[in-house]
Amino acid sequence: MSLEQFKDRNVGTQNYVKLDLEHTPTEGWCKFKQVVKRTFQPELFQGLGVTLREMINALFRNKMHTTKYPFEKLPISPRYRAVHDMLRLMESGNYRCIGCGLCEKICISDCIAMETKYDENQRKEVSEYTINFGRCIFCGYCAEVCPELAIVHGGRFENASEQRAGFSLFEDMLTPMDQLNQQQEYAGFGAISPNADENIKSTPLAY
């Protein structure tokens, strides 16, 4: 399945076909004629044919629909808002978060908790960062407000846990150092749109 299907949000542009149904008969004789017609038309057998065809498709032509879920997963849209990821800078490998605290501030369910301090270079360092996923409503505001595209929504949607609240620490969400080359630029919520350059207009200076 391609991602295009997920991205097509223009409902109504798809190919819908209107069924050409006859009127339901009201009089007795017409009803009787309909029954006779349906009895002797192969209508019912067409129905049988469809199910048999699907069975043959499924069994012999490898068109089984089932996804064996825990073992296989379908791709999800990049816009899907699942458990957060913390991204790193590609060049240096540092985490992108600058500790500005905007995500903590905007979070409407108040589930981000962070502490920052200055490190020896007087650079802001994130010393604590957790998200309480028992409270998070996956609204995506944090990803949208983040100026650095540091906090984004990942694709990890399996949130079932044995306890009511699950906390994720900064390290859990951070891209592991050895997988840095696999880090994808985030295409979803809050990301810069592909045609961002075209939308930028020069600020009018003269009045």
Binding site: T51, E54, A58, M64, H65, T66, K68
Partner: peptide
């Protein structure tokens, strides 16, 4: 099984 196959499912596996 048969109903599943006809709906292109797997049935009990």
């Amino acid at each position: 099984k048969i109903l599943a196959f006809m709906q292109r499912r797997l049935g009990p596996t």
